Amino acid sequence: MNVCYDLHTHTTASDGTLPPSVLVARAVAAGVDVLAVTDHDTTEGLLEASTAAKGSGICLVTGVEISVTWSGQVVHIVGLGFDPENKTLQAGLAELRRFRGWRAEEIGRRLEKHGISGAYEGAKGYSNGHLISRTHFARFLVEQGYAPDMRKVFKQFLTQGKPGHVAGEWADLGKAVGWIHGAGGEAVIAHPARYGMTRTKLRRLIGEFQEAGGAALEVVSGSHSRDEAFTMAKHSRDFSLRASVGSDYHGPETPWADLGKLSALPDNAVPIWRGWPDLAVSIPA
C-alpha cells in the first residue's frame, strides 16, 4: 500500500489561508495519509489540527518552519515530530515572533514613506493578528492594485533593494536545529533548490546543517522541478541525510503546490519516515 505524505503545509496560524481544521479536512479529501502542519515560527495551529485529525484516518505529525539567517541569506528549517510543549523551543520561537512583529511595523513605515498608506493595518487584516508576514503585505498590495499578482508584488516591493524590504535577523542555523533536536524532533532543510545558491554554497549549507545534527533535505517540494528533486536526492545521499516531501501548501490560491499531488521520491532516496513509529507526537489537549 502506498502512503501519501505531505510534511510541509501552512495555515492561518502563519501565512496560510485555511484554518488548521479546514486544512486537515482538505488533506483528508486529497488522500493525504500523513500530514505535518509547519507554520512559520509558531506551533499555534497544532492543537486545532490535532483535534480535527482525530477519527479522520489521517496521521498528524507535529511541525514548524523556523526562519534562519545563514551566510547572509534566509533559509527555512522544518522541524518534525517534536514535543510542542518544549520550553526551549517555544522560547526560541517566541523571540522570532517578536522580531516579526517589529519587522511588520517597519515594513508598514517604509511603504508609508513610499506613498502607500495603511499597509500595516491592511496586512494585519489578512493575518490572524498575531503573526504578520510579508505574504500578508503582498496580499494587501495586490488587493489595492499595486501589482497584478503575488510574485510580481514581491519583486516590486518586498525583496532586497525595494521599498518595503526589511532585512531579517533570524535564528542561527545551529540553534534552530538544536531547538528541534532538544524537543525530540528531526530537522529538515525546506525547499533547498529555491534559495538560488550556487552548488558550492548549497553544499556548504548542507554540510553545516548535517554537522549541527540535521536529519533530511526536502527533496520533493511544491516549488521543485523533477530535475531539482533528483539533484536534491543526490545531495542527501552525499551527506548521508534522509529525504522529505512537502507541498509547502498555503491555500487553494496556489494550485501548483496542492495537497496530495506530490511526485514520489527518487528511488535511491532514503525517506525521512523510515523508522518513524514513535515520531508522531500527540498534542496535549
Rank of each mutant, 00 (worst) to 15 (best):
W276Y: 12
V245S: 13
V22C: 07
I107R: 04
L96K: 08
A30N: 00
A215S: 14
A285Y: 07
T12C: 08
W102E: 15
F140V: 06
R98P: 08
P252R: 12
A53C: 04
G185N: 01
K113H: 07
L262E: 05
G108K: 00
D278W: 13
G213F: 02
K162N: 06
V37G: 10
L111A: 05
V281F: 07
S221V: 01
A94P: 12
S71V: 09
A216S: 07
K155E: 15
L80K: 01
R199K: 13
L265T: 09
A187Y: 03
T51H: 13
S56Y: 00
Y126H: 15
M150K: 10
G251L: 08
V220F: 06
T62W: 05
V3K: 13
M150T: 07
F82P: 02
A285M: 13
H136C: 11
T62Q: 03
T69W: 10
R151N: 14
A233M: 08
R199D: 12
T159A: 00
E228S: 11
A285T: 14
T12G: 01
I189K: 04
G72H: 03
A49S: 07
A119V: 01
Q73L: 14
Q156S: 14
L80G: 09
I283G: 11
G207T: 09
E228Q: 14
E95K: 15
W70F: 02
E106A: 14
L47K: 11
A183F: 00
G222A: 08
D258N: 15
G101S: 15
G129Q: 04
M232W: 06
A52R: 01
V22M: 03
E95P: 08
F239L: 08
G63M: 04
R103P: 10
E85G: 13
G275P: 10
E85V: 10
G31R: 04
T43K: 05
H40R: 08
V281R: 15
E186F: 12
V22N: 06
Q144R: 15
S67K: 03
G125Q: 09
A269F: 07
G108I: 09
S263E: 14
T17Y: 03
A36R: 04
A269P: 09
L60P: 07
A167K: 13
H40Q: 02
E218N: 01
H40W: 11
G260Y: 03
R103Q: 04
R274D: 13
D258G: 14
A167N: 06
F230N: 05
N86I: 01
D15S: 11
L141V: 14
G251A: 02
I189F: 06
P284K: 02
A233I: 00
G213E: 07
G196N: 09
G129W: 08
Y249P: 10
R226W: 05
Q144I: 11
H130A: 15
A269R: 02
F99H: 12
T69E: 07
D33T: 03
R203A: 00
D258R: 12
A257R: 14
A104K: 05
G161C: 01
L141S: 04
A104D: 04
A53M: 02
I206F: 04
G55I: 01
A215D: 04
V142H: 05
A91Y: 02
E143C: 07
P255S: 02
L35T: 04
G72W: 01
V166C: 11
R204T: 14
G246V: 00
A91C: 09
G185Y: 03
T9S: 11
A183N: 00
E218A: 07
D41A: 12
L96A: 15
D267F: 12
C4H: 11
P20W: 12
E106D: 10
A138P: 02
R226A: 15
